[in-house]
Design a protein around this nucleic acid. Structure first.
Length: 452
DNA sequence: CCCCCGGACTCAGAAAAATAGAT
DNA sequence: TATCTATTTTTCTGAGTCCGGGG
């Protein structure tokens, strides 16, 4: 085994996919009842590999799943920053030791060697109902956990990703009824019903997040259910002016025209309250989601974001794509992608006013021995560059505010893109980079006629 | 029934690293 | 070609969502 000599091993798995993996980064486990090869795990003993490979030759050669591990390093000590005005900012995040870490492996699987001599793992578990490989308590908030999961490219993650989009597609069959129902309830006599209706409307139309309650030791941010009176100002006749800090303390500012009954309902929810009071005092996320589940199996608030982003992309692509060469079609795609987000996920576009990154090389200190002429040319060039930057700044700022990457990764059903590429003979590599390609393997064999 | 909270997972932007492009 | 710069990709880990179980 030459590869073994080199410290590598080659693994064949289901579709003939092969990977040469450095032995030092391979670990074997029985996880979720599947024998698996995990890679990018450090410090595996040679003996362990030998033991497993002997076993696998007879039993498991064709059953082994080969998965990349997502995060395989513990978080190093640091000063905690957090996002926005975080109450715990500046707190020391202490070092994590093996004795802090609980490991999840198959029953009977060899226990991974503890990398620090004389120490041991906190606990070994054999739980095949969860996907995590290991966890430790977050030193900043000991009530919370940090997990080691498989990478996004794993079949396990792919499967749940697919399920997420299938659920969003199911919403397609219900959305008309749901919209009709909440529109009717804008004027319901029952306050709770009215609040549920308006909240659902905001989540659907503005892609607001559900908005769980937060503790006092977290940054003070809100979502739909936790909106405060001061966050939504009614401007007659029917404009709502939103201004609040959402996820990651990103400021959401938006003025939207709404249906008169919604406007009226908001005004009424505000009456008799002060600025810091809850706008939806009868609501929280569990009540809202419980209601949504009555309308469609498995429906929760976040499904609306996936649904609206994906359906918009699908519609725009089919509407906007005409003839042209590959490059033109790619432009159509990028445009559809961007517009889709502008329409659907406006939420994250309004950014907090952060300081711009400082201009590099602004000190202008020459590092080389330049003669005066060269120096002057340099100065002229630099000045021109600065001017160009000034001119481009606005355009760039515009593009930067579009969370393109995020939505491509999290909200747009990849099958829409793959099918469109097939229909229009655009190589998928023009749209998805290497990691997106790996993450969306499950979507690659979709029929060209697929529509979301 | 409701509420609280532990638990496990998705989603998110900043920073770092890699790569492409300009000079 | 070498080097510097701009852009893209990857990593990192914080911040949400949502579920389910117990009181």
């Amino acid at each position: 085994m030459a590869l073994r000599e080199m410290g590598l091993m080659e693994i064949n798995w289901s579709k003939g996919c092969r990977a040469k993996l450095p032995l030092s980064r391979v670990r074997f486990t029985h996880h979720l009842d599947h024998p698996m090869v995990l890679w990018q795990v450090t410090n595996t003993s040679r003996a362990l590999v030998d033991q497993f490979t002997r076993k696998s030759k007879s039993l498991y050669t064709f059953l082994i799943l080969c998965c990349r591990v997502g995060n395989f390093r513990v978080e190093p000590p640091a000063l905690f920053r957090g996002r926005g005005e975080h109450p715990k900012m500046g707190k020391l995040k202490k070092r994590i030791w093996p004795s802090d870490i609980t490991i999840n492996i198959g029953k009977g699987a060899p226990i991974p060697e503890c990398p620090i001599p004389g120490q041991r793992w906190k606990e070994i578990r054999h739980d095949n109902t969860v996907t995590w490989l290991a966890f430790w308590n977050d030193p900043i908030n000991p009530k919370e956990f940090k997990y080691v999961f498989l990478a996004a490219s794993s079949s396990l993650k792919g499967q749940s990703d697919k399920e997420k989009y299938e659920k969003a597609r199911l919403l397609k069959d219900y959305i008309q009824g749901i919209r009709a129902a909440y529109t009717k309830d804008f004027a319901s006599k029952d306050v709770t019903k009215r609040q549920i209706a308006v909240a659902t409307y905001l989540i659907d139309k503005l892609a607001l997040r559900a908005g769980n309650e937060k503790d006092d030791d977290e940054a003070d941010t809100v979502g739909c259910c936790t909106l405060k009176v001061e966050n939504v100002e009614p401007l007659p006749p029917n404009i709502l002016k939103f201004d609040f800090l959402g996820k990651d303390s990103i400021r959401y500012q938006n003025e939207v025209e709404v249906e008169p009954p919604v406007f009226k309902a908001i005004q009424q929810f505000r009456t008799g309250k002060s600025g810091g009071d809850d706008l939806f005092d009868e609501l929280d996320t569990s009540k809202l989601n419980a209601h949504l589940k009555e309308l469609m199996p498995g429906l929760t608030a976040k499904v609306f974001r996936t649904y609206n982003a994906s359906i918009t992309l699908d519609e725009m692509l089919s509407r906007e794509t005409k003839g042209g060469d590959v490059a033109e079609k790619v432009v159509v795609y990028q445009h559809a992608n961007k517009e889709g987000i502008l329409n659907g996920l406006k939420t994250d576009l309004a950014r907090s006013k952060k300081g711009k990154p400082p201009l590099k090389g602004a000190d202008g200190k020459p590092r080389k021995n330049l003669n005066p002429d060269a120096l002057e040319r340099k100065i002229v060039q630099t000045t021109a560059k600065v001017e160009k930057m000034e001119r481009d700044k606005e355009t760039k700022e515009d593009l930067k505010t579009v969370a393109l990457g995020t939505s491509k990764i999290n909200y747009l059903d990849p099958r829409i893109t793959v099918a469109w590429c097939k229909r229009h003979e655009v190589p998928i590599e023009k749209i998805f980079n290497k990691s997106l390609l790996a993450k969306f393997t499950w979507a690659m064999d979709i029929d060209p006629s697929f529509r979301f």
